[in-house]
Design a protein around this nucleic acid. Structure first.
Length: 159
DNA sequence: GCCAACGTTGGC
DNA sequence: GCCAACGTTGGC
């Protein structure tokens, strides 16, 4: 069995927050709306059931990692991409020939306190984290196991 | 609201 | 295939 992989997924809390996820039936949702090829490829090709996800609030005050989720369903077509009325509609994607994919995630944990970007920048073990790279905009990105573990430890210390 | 850093589009 | 113009992301 393949090893568990670690990821980080961004969302603007004004459009979908970790609290929204917590309010879902079974605390599950489909991660629709990704319209970037690199992010899509990670979701479509590499995410497996059981992988762990750091849940990140972008464009928030402050921007922060706010919790952890788990992949509960592997990639399938993002049906919102061929829905004309959807904000993420893409005329080049159809049900017959889907261009965009999504996964299902389930909430695992909301941190007692969010871990702000500022705090993360001051942690040596996270120096090379993709999230902290200047100009990093990827909304779905891989995280190293050490980075993931470090983040969890930091979250625990807050208690 | 500004703007740097991307990614995408489309004319050539 | 190049690259200018344009659009988006996201911290500040």
């Amino acid at each position: 069995m393949a090893a568990v992989k670690y990821w980080l997924m961004k969302t603007e809390p004004t459009s979908y927050s970790i609290q929204d996820l917590a309010a879902e039936k079974q605390q599950k949702t489909f991660w629709n709306g990704v319209r970037n090829y690199q992010a899509r490829n990670y979701m479509r090709d590499e995410m497996k059931v059981g992988d762990k996800v750091l849940f990140y609030h972008s464009n928030a005050t402050p921007p922060a990692i706010v919790g952890v989720a788990t992949i509960v369903r592997e990639s399938y077509p993002d049906h919102t991409s061929w829905d004309r009325d959807n904000k993420h509609y893409d005329p080049k994607s159809t049900a017959q020939n889907p261009r965009w994919f999504m996964v299902d995630i389930k909430l695992e944990q909301i941190f007692d306190e969010p871990l702000p970007l500022d705090t993360l920048r001051n942690v040596a073990a996270l120096k090379e984290m993709e999230l902290l790279r200047k100009g990093s905009r990827l909304s779905v990105q891989p995280v190293k196991r050490l980075e993931f573990d470090t983040v969890l430890k930091l979250a625990k210390k807050k208690r």
